[in-house]
Design a binder for these strands. Structure first.
Lengths: 351, 351
DNA sequence: AGTAGAAATGTGACCGGTCACAATGGCGCT
DNA sequence: AGCGCCATTGTGACCGGTCACATTTCTACT
């Protein structure tokens, strides 16, 4: 086994004939360092290949240069078990890294249980071990006040994904209501006036907001709001299949369906095929979420693409700023995108 | 801002009236601690809510309790940009956590550039900062000897995903050849004898091994090996579309196609539709990889599911063992799974 | 020139663990 | 009782940075 530690700050200090503290000041862009000295130190750092050791930094220092990203264990497990596609963590990693790299931060990912009490215990353990500068909570943990309380108590900055209350935290989200409006307008622009909405759960703030957007858009376009065209789904495939079947079997059927998540959109897709209709000729279909599957199924589905990477990137930015002493709390709304694919292509023949 | 550090080892020591070292021994399951003392210390740890600080542990100690997982930046970016589904990191996280949690380890994910030189510089920086106990290299970095040399030189254990040479590293992989055989047998069992193989690149060891398996299975079943039914793909959609079109347009067409990756399988799917054939009635289709898309497209595709989670889990196990001084080097082959879906359903009417 | 005050640099302690080694305790044996 | 030996426990140094504060050097102004 070779040397466990290479060049230290003392080696650099010795090399330039300065004290450790001066080198430390250069590293941290501290004030009161003569420019010529700063250059000399930087040159030596480069030449010797010195890289500060994160563990040592966080010992006496106040920063750990770590951002902890929390995901839900059960959801992750379930996605894995069901073989259901999910690139959530991929997106988090991508978004987080773009920001963390700039400031020399690193991302640690951890899974914790859905159960609020267990979650709290587990989070306590992890933050005690790692002492990260910031923690990113993703749904459903962004809604667990035990966790935010714990973090507040421990003096660790916290970012919540999917919430928009702000207050003392860094909240990142997207404009769910606007997305609901956008998809509705998208369909209206393509000639649809008979648009049904397959809703998720009223327990989810996001669902409610999206539905609001749908209603707003309908009224903006002077279209009738039909209660029987609000499907009560639960984000699951089976329930959605039943709803879709009822809508599509009759003569008074909608010409477009908006599904609150991808699982339900797939349910519609399969139902359409069973009933003998075609997408997009007989029915336009649009989904939120834009998980991997919707992009590759036949036909590819138009969907709202959640700005996961952007949200996480912003969360990291806020947390890093917070650990530098700035007040980074507030709400950040990342812009979503409507990805147009075949399922709402204009081949639809209304009239 | 509240207390930055809670209970320390000294607090526990004071509580039980023992020295720090004794508490440390209990923590690390060290020898020579009287059982009664061990119990008393454990009780105090529990009661006071003491959690050892990882940074402090790695300072004087030899372990950092960190596993670093390296993924390719360009590939990750490209997947993100193209909106292509990819739950690779999700699977890594899931697999890694199941093992890391058992031993109090944490996973840090990092992206590095494809370019070998840049990759080396970036890896050097990260391992200098974090000093992880082990590093997991995923393709294409598992093949970059600069990285493995660097890790060897720095005395950091290394696991390579997708290699099977073993030697001084922890190599984790799956039986690619066996998978090639398996899919072929699967098709033969369903009555197919006209099976084409849409290959990836001969530069990829995995491609070669899978193709070997296909040939072996054909000969086991007494079926003819037709050179014109080996498609030269390059893992890309477009090239594969051309090959598929040539096969399917003529009368002498195969009744089943094996695609070396999912992108190519999708190309076949779309080509089949264009040509006016149906899956699985006219053509059976099967893919390796099993990325999210294949599970949800219409019809859902039968595919080999890569045991990513299992491989990463094993990699972590090996790295953790190595950091405990054990010799964990060697090759571990994770069992793959054939996930049967509609694209090879028996509705196929041969005869 | 003398001196105040800011700018630049240095010093020792310290963070919270683990290491190497020293010291103590308990037991069996002669 | 005296001894050896192993099991158990304790002590001081140390890892590589940063903190608080002390010291020196420079600049400006009376």
């Amino acid at each position: 086994m070779a040397s466990k530690q290479g060049v230290t700050i003392r080696d650099v200090a010795r090399d330039v004939g300065m004290s450790r503290q001066t080198v430390s000041r250069v590293l941290n862009n501290g004030p009161n360092v003569k420019p010529s000295v700063r250059d000399k130190v930087n040159e030596a750092i480069e030449r010797l290949g010195y890289v500060p050791n994160i563990s040592a930094r966080r010992m006496r220092g106040s920063r750990s240069y770590l951002i902890l990203a929390i995901n839900d264990r059960q959801r992750t497990f379930e996605n894995w078990r069901a073989g259901r596609g999910n690139d959530w963590v991929d997106q988090m990693l991508f978004g987080g890294m773009t920001e963390c790299e700039k400031h020399g931060y690193h991302m640690v990912f951890e899974l914790i249980d859905t159960d609020p009490t267990k979650a709290q215990e587990q989070l306590f353990k992890v933050i005690s071990e790692l002492r990260p500068d910031g923690v990113i909570l993703t749904p459903p943990h962004s809604d667990n006040s035990r966790l935010t309380d714990l973090l507040k108590d421990q003096g660790i900055a916290c970012a919540r994904v999917g919430r928009r209350e702000g207050g003392e935290f860094v909240d990142v989200c997207m404009d769910e209501c606007g997305a609901g409006q956008r998809v509705t307008h998208h369909l209206v622009e393509r000639g649809h006036s008979r648009i049904a909405y397959l809703a998720g759960s009223p327990d989810y703030g996001t669902s409610v907001m999206r539905l609001d957007g749908y209603r707003a858009a309908l009224s903006e376009c002077g279209l009738e709001f039909r209660k029987d065209w609000i499907g009560k789904g639960d984000f699951q495939f089976d329930t959605a299949s039943v709803v879709a079947h009822n809508w599509l079997y009759g003569a008074d059927r909608p010409t477009a369906i908006i599904a609150d998540n991808d699982q339900m959109a797939f349910a519609v897709l399969h139902t359409v095929e069973r009933v003998g209709l075609r997408i997009p000729e007989d029915l336009a279909l649009i989904s939120f979420e834009d998980t991997p599957g919707v992009r590759l199924c036949v036909p590819p589905m138009t969907a709202i693409r959640q700005p996961t990477a952007a949200m996480i990137s912003r969360a990291c930015e806020g947390l890093i700023a917070a650990s530098s002493g700035e007040d980074a709390s507030g709400v950040f709304e990342a812009p979503f995108e409507l990805i147009e694919r075949t399922s709402t292509a204009p081949s639809f023949s209304h009239s």
